[in-house]
Design a protein around this nucleic acid. Sequence first.
DNA 1: ATTATGAAAAATGTAACAAAAATCAAGTTG
DNA 2: CAACTTGATTTTTGTTACATTTTTCATAAT
Lengths: 218, 218
Amino acid sequence: MPDNSTDQRSEHKQHGGARTGAGRKKGSGRFGEPTKVMRIPASKVAQVKQWLAQDQAANCAPEVNAQKWTGLLKTQGVSLFQSVAPANEAPVSLPLFSHKVVAGFPSPADDYIENRLDLNEHLIRNQEATFLLVVEGDSMQKAGIKDGDILVVDRSIEPSDGKIVIAALDGELTVKRLSIKSTGTWLVPENDDYPPIPVREEADMVIWGVVTATISRF
Amino acid sequence: MPDNSTDQRSEHKQHGGARTGAGRKKGSGRFGEPTKVMRIPASKVAQVKQWLAQDQAANCAPEVNAQKWTGLLKTQGVSLFQSVAPANEAPVSLPLFSHKVVAGFPSPADDYIENRLDLNEHLIRNQEATFLLVVEGDSMQKAGIKDGDILVVDRSIEPSDGKIVIAALDGELTVKRLSIKSTGTWLVPENDDYPPIPVREEADMVIWGVVTATISRF
DNA sequence: ATTATGAAAAATGTAACAAAAATCAAGTTG
DNA sequence: CAACTTGATTTTTGTTACATTTTTCATAAT
């Protein structure tokens, strides 16, 4: 301020002034939460940045198309790099027939048709937040998840008790059932050969997303 | 350095000294490259750390083997879909990851995406000959096919021994494993409550197609 | 009442710093 | 002379500090 000689006169220029309650609100940043600085190898800076940007996009992902999809909807956690494929319409529409059809080939024109189904639409509620994983191992055998299955994982579903989740443990992804009890949090395999895994801290494990479907090929 | 008064005498304590070429080598850090500091939202610090830690560890061997499934099978009432004429493809391509992905980041920086997969393309090879069946009843749960599962049935595949087939029996569609032995042909339910069904003549039943995949939702 | 203005508070990117780790060669020891 | 010590030197690394920017709001001005 160049000229501040006469305080009495300077008033005519003042608009603001000391006041309480002013200032930027907490959580008004990009991430809605406090941040920390950390050191990242140069070659991965871009990747991390992209990941952070994607994660925001996934978190505010719109409701795409869900007719008969039951499930909680909430955002949380991770996201991945993924090119958004413009979902054009009318791809694979599959007519649904009654199970009472007998020998003979049902025609789509028949009134046997109960419904039409597109596998992508049926299995993917939030494309931005969905990815696929190939299962290795049989720790979830009793849940019907077998080695080689393809899991449909939705990151936008809030992990909750009883959900089958993808968790990063010891640097590997595992699929387990999440058990949140008063006694603590557990990752429970659905195979008697494997013991439940206690989860002590957040750092122990990162939950990637919730398994919404599994696909087995014969 | 407490005593440095007399340089001539101080030599007796000196081991090192000014020299060139000393010092830590470049690239000797954890990442083998220079680093940068960046600001990360607090909730994601753990994920980034885990990813960075994992990334230096062993590289993963991407072994995607989607077909070593040796499962049982089951049958019950089913609902029927049919595939419809192949529409213009606007594939909803999803990222397909291998097992070794960590904390929100794929492990190897570049080939993290094993593949991109469109579920329709992946599951429906011959669209005009493909049906979808919704399984009714949970008698096949033990075999990995549960109530509400969607079966992908391909009519263009030749039924052979061991295949899981859709057969029309008594005006209803059922899922059975086809057993063609020297002793005869059987439709074998994978459920103790149901006996194997002998197939005497072709007219006894009509095989609609071969099950190529099953989809379970959670 | 509406708008303009600037102060207050938080967010953000980068610089700076201290401590730790790594590395080497001169000096010491055997 | 070879092996070991040891401190100097340099990079790494986690954190703090700081200068900007952004957001928000109370108040003056209209």
